[in-house]
Computed example of a mutant assay.
Amino acid sequence: MCARDRRLKEIQMWSIIRETLLYICFLSLLYTVIFSNCQSNSYSQVKHLQNFLLNSRQMDDDYTKISTINQYWNWLENSFISNIRAQEWYNGDAPRNLSGFINDKSSRLIGWVTMRQLRIKSDLCPAHVNEIISTCRYDYSFSNEDKNSYKPGWVVNETIQTYSSSINQSFIYSTSKDLDTYIYVGDHGTYGSGGYVYEFRGRLVDLQ
């Protein structure tokens, strides 16, 4: 019995050693894959794209200083859209062989730019406020997120004007499963993973 027990203990010991070695090999491989792709230029690249697309280096149309709806639309139409497509060079030459590049002429898009909007429900105001304003909108939260689908112009009924399929689709609520997205934790709140998505596809003249 002693020899048999000793043999069983040896088998268990070697099994533990084998599992430990396999675990160490797995961690080593994981460590190699994760840290071998780290580059010192990654931070600079991200910072450049943030400053470039948010236009924070300019006095006009700086996204970080937006406080009104009109300022947002000015930034979107006059800065953001023009910067996601390569424009003419400083000397007026056409941007040849730069299809798919953004306007910094060095960064290339993989796929296309998307913009996701989250909306809040509009409720009737309480009686004591109703004399001043009829519709109340509260801060965003998961409980008051609007998940209804609309027609262009945020209306329920059909409109007379004809819109492209991308615009029509942007007024239809998409779930996180549709978008393959996750909950986002921002500086001012936590935001749901669904929303109304517009895809910036096509030529610049079409986007404008």
Rank of each mutant, 00 (worst) to 15 (best):
R6S: 05
R7H: 10
E10Q: 10
I11H: 02
I11G: 03
Q12T: 03
M13E: 13
M13T: 06
W14H: 14
T20I: 09
L21W: 11
L27G: 10
L29N: 15
F35Y: 14
F35H: 11
F35N: 14
N37I: 15
C38S: 08
Q39A: 08
Q39R: 08
N41S: 08
N41Y: 12
Y43E: 00
S44H: 11
Q45I: 07
Q45T: 09
V46C: 10
K47L: 12
Q50P: 01
F52W: 02
R57K: 04
Q58L: 06
Q58V: 01
Q58P: 03
D61S: 06
T64F: 00
K65P: 01
S67R: 02
T68G: 06
I69F: 14
I69G: 09
Y72D: 14
W73N: 14
W73P: 13
W73Q: 15
N74D: 15
L76S: 11
F80S: 03
I81A: 07
S82A: 07
N83H: 13
I84C: 03
A86Y: 13
Q87V: 00
E88L: 15
E88A: 11
E88G: 02
W89E: 08
Y90A: 04
Y90Q: 04
Y90C: 03
N91F: 15
G92W: 06
A94H: 14
P95L: 07
R96G: 06
N97W: 15
K105S: 05
R108H: 13
R108M: 12
L109I: 10
G111D: 13
G111Y: 07
W112Y: 09
T114G: 15
M115E: 05
M115V: 12
M115H: 15
Q117D: 07
L118R: 08
I120L: 00
S122Y: 00
D123E: 05
L124K: 06
V129A: 02
N130S: 11
I133G: 01
I133T: 03
S134W: 14
S134P: 05
C136N: 00
R137A: 01
Y138V: 05
N144I: 01
N144K: 04
N144Y: 12
E145L: 03
D146V: 01
K147V: 06
S149A: 04
K151V: 04
K151L: 02
N157H: 13
N157P: 06
T159Y: 00
I160W: 04
Q161K: 11
T162N: 08
T162V: 07
Y163N: 13
S165Q: 08
F171G: 01
S176I: 00
S176N: 05
D178V: 12
L179S: 05
T181W: 12
Y184V: 00
H188F: 05
H188K: 11
G192H: 03
G194P: 05
G195Y: 07
Y198T: 01
R201K: 13
V205N: 11
D206S: 14
L207N: 11
L207Y: 13
Q208C: 09
